[in-house]
């Protein structure tokens, strides 16, 4: 086992930054983290790899990400309006692949939401494809493999 600690620290810092933006609903800043061709994916089947030919909970290109954020920020959505706070923990960060123009990272997430006074918890395995830039990274792909995907979720008015 040969861990590139410097790289792990860099991607951990980036993933932590993204998580903080999402928990604090700084969605416009979150949109700027993405490569324009990037895909935000929440599968219904965690074994699936062909997302385009499958039904997903979300398969967002840049347009859909922009619309998803617009919906959450518009004030028109009753569920977004009453969404509680979320607190997510990102950990168990491992770099799976590293090339000059791509870093593939896997990590664990536990997201907690207080919804109408009840705590709802969403554990997930996360996969990121990150493109190194001068300032850090941009996201080429983020796959959120929710444990709930095998079962029944509650409705979601935030971004994993």
């Amino acid at each position: 086992m040969n861990i590139n600690t410097d790289l792990v620290n860099k991607v951990t810092a980036f993933i932590g930054y993204e998580a903080d933006l999402l928990d604090h609903k700084e969605y416009q800043a979150w949109l700027s983290l993405w490569d324009p061709k990037g895909l935000y994916i929440v599968p219904t089947d965690n074994k699936e790899t062909n997302y385009e030919d499958s039904v997903n909970l979300a398969l967002d290109d840049a347009d859909m990400r922009r619309m998803r954020v617009a919906r959450l920020e518009s004030g028109e959505s009753v569920s977004a309006g009453s969404a509680g706070v979320t607190v997510r923990m990102m950990s168990r960060v491992r770099v799976l692949e590293e090339t000059a123009d791509c870093v593939v990272v896997r990590c664990a997430m536990t997201l907690n939401e207080l919804r109408h006074g009840n705590l709802v918890t969403y554990p997930a395995d996360m996969e990121y494809r990150l493109q190194p830039t001068d300032n850090g990274f941009v996201i080429e792909r983020k796959v959120v493999k929710l444990m709930h995907a095998e079962s029944f979720l509650r409705t979601v008015s935030f971004i994993f």
Binding site: V42, T44, L57, A58, M67, R68, R71, S77, V78, S79, A80, S82, L153, R154, T155, V156, S157
Partner: peptide, 13 residues
Amino acid sequence: GPMGFGTPDDGEA
């Protein structure tokens, strides 16, 4: 679905 642009608002109601 639970992350669609419609269903979460139905669920809230």
